[in-house]
Amino acid sequence: MLKLTEIDTFYGDLQALWGISLEVREGEMVSLIGPNGAGKTTTLQSITGLLRPAKGSITFDGHDLLKVPPDKIVDLGVSMVMEGGRVFAGMTVLENLELGAYGSRARKERFETMEHVFKTFPRLKERLNQRAGTLSGGERQMLAIGRAMMSKPKLLMLDEPSFGLAPILVDAIFEMVKGINKQGVTILLVEQNVRAALELADRAYVIENGRIVGEGSGEALLSYESVRSAYLG
């Protein structure tokens, strides 16, 4: 479904990704783990068009994503939740959700999609006319994921959804992500919370210094000695 082949991405003159290749198959939940600054976020941003790789190729459902303008990528069914959620704080919960369905494909069905999102996140319905800036951290993350769901993605990419949340909320968020995956949405998850990320995922990639250094099923990586010593202590 999603395939990255040998991509190099730069920040100005600084090379952040070195020949990254990875694949996400339909229906899978794939985790991307690695230390801070390894290039996890950069990889996601290269897929969504926020950054453009200098080399390599990215294909999604047969489309060459490097040839698709950033605002059309979401229309193809790729959605991303950035670290911290990045909801529009000055706008209401409802407006945030509406903007999630901005693309022409999702806009037509936005009312039905919204009902569907409320089933996963009933809290959002209660907060509908509240400004997103007044929500708690957990609610913001739910809104961010709900907003991404409004675009009816085939592939949902999440950047550190557990970041800054209380442990009990982290579990709840992961449960919801799992639920979304069960509904048939393919998931690419970037996480610092390595144990949870590996337990949840069908497969995982380990990234270090902008290079993929390991790959395997979540279970296999969990028992993999270098991963254990580096991330699980």
């Binding site: 979401v74 901005y102 675009s151």
Partner: peptide, 15 residues
């Protein structure tokens, strides 16, 4: 208004 607040987030919405 979304672009005023956060252009990156706005771009991800397909704006």
């Amino acid at each position: 208004r979304a672009t005023v607040e956060d252009w990156q987030s706005a771009s991800l919405m397909g704006i």
